[in-house]
């Protein structure tokens, strides 16, 4: 019974997210304010369904559902959605939702394409640290994803401004200043969560494996990602790195995030690999 609900929930998450992206895209082309509100409501609906889906998986599995590939990506989509929705509460960035909803849809499609099986939890993962470490890390990825989307929008807008060919994106995308602000805020929030994720991970590692750090591929790549973002933040604070350079760096950083999340599991293995 519960697993059927669970199955249905994921399919409805997919469907609702698809509709949200579609409406956002129509809004992006037509720019009718009414559609934006509709699209946002649908995205909120998708966010709520994602939450319910994760809860239902938790009830079935009995542990925080973030250990398999499918679960990690769903959690990732969830954190992007809610990072955006909470962010929107304070700042309004024109047409940001279109980019976010597409990213969420892509993540969910990837999640749909991998196995949704439940796996018994490895003994090493049975700990209260699991939700803390994985949850905080995924929240970090959520905010870093926002800065990635902001970075892409910045590059699109800047290209039109620099080339002096004001076309499709010029009127639809927000000002460079607000995109740069977005980058700065998301970078700060994302980096804070990322650091907390690494600290909690290493405390957990000390408890589970007896050592704070063991140069596992995932740990190594997390450290690389952490450094990429640390450099960005440092340069922004000290010499005022901003604009195009910051946008490019946020995209590079996010590529590193994605590699840490997937590439490492498939290509390099290690103790962090999810159940295959």
């Amino acid at each position: 019974m519960l697993s059927e609900i669970n199955y249905l929930l994921f399919n409805s998450v997919l469907a609702v997210s698809f509709v949200a992206s579609a409406v956002y895209l129509v809004f992006f082309f037509g720019q009718q304010e009414r559609l934006r509100k509709v699209a946002r409501m649908i995205l909120i609906g998708s966010g709520i369904l994602q939450t319910l889906y994760i809860l239902s998986r938790y009830l079935i599995a009995g542990y925080t559902p973030i250990t398999s590939q499918h679960e990690a990506i769903t959690f990732f989509a969830w954190s992007v959605t809610w990072a955006y929705l909470s962010f929107h509460w304070r700042y309004s960035v024109r047409n940001f939702g279109t980019f976010i909803s597409l990213l969420v849809l892509i993540l969910l499609l990837v999640a749909a394409s991998v196995s949704r099986e439940f796996h018994p939890l490895a003994p090493a993962l049975q700990s209260l640290w699991l939700p803390v470490h994985a949850g905080v890390s995924v929240m970090a990825y959520g905010f870093l994803a926002l800065s990635f989307c902001g970075g892409i929008m910045y590059l699109l807008q800047e290209r039109e401004l620099k080339s002096k060919k004001l076309g499709f994106f010029f009127s639809r995308l927000p000002s460079l200043e607000s995109l740069d602000q977005l980058n700065s805020h998301c970078l700060t929030a994302g980096f804070t969560f990322l650091t907390l994720g690494m600290v909690s991970g290493s405390i957990w590692a000390r408890q589970a494996w007896g050592t704070y750090w063991q140069w596992d591929p995932k740990e190594t790549w997390s450290l690389i990602t952490w450094f990429l973002y640390a450099i960005q933040l440092h340069q922004r604070v000290t010499v005022g790195w901003r604009g195009k350079r910051a946008a490019v760096m946020s995209i590079v950083g996010f590529a590193s995030v994605l590699f840490t999340l997937w590439g490492v599991t498939y290509l390099l293995g290690g103790v962090h690999s999810y159940a295959q």
């Binding site: 000002s175 460079l176 200043e177």
Partner: peptide
């Protein structure tokens, strides 16, 4: 969208400045 685009040089400059500086 008849009223949405700037059709004099001064307006165009303002429009550009707003896309760069926000406000």
């Amino acid at each position: 969208r008849i009223g949405s685009s700037a059709v004099s040089i001064s307006y165009a400059a303002i429009e550009l400045a707003k896309k760069i500086f926000g406000t």
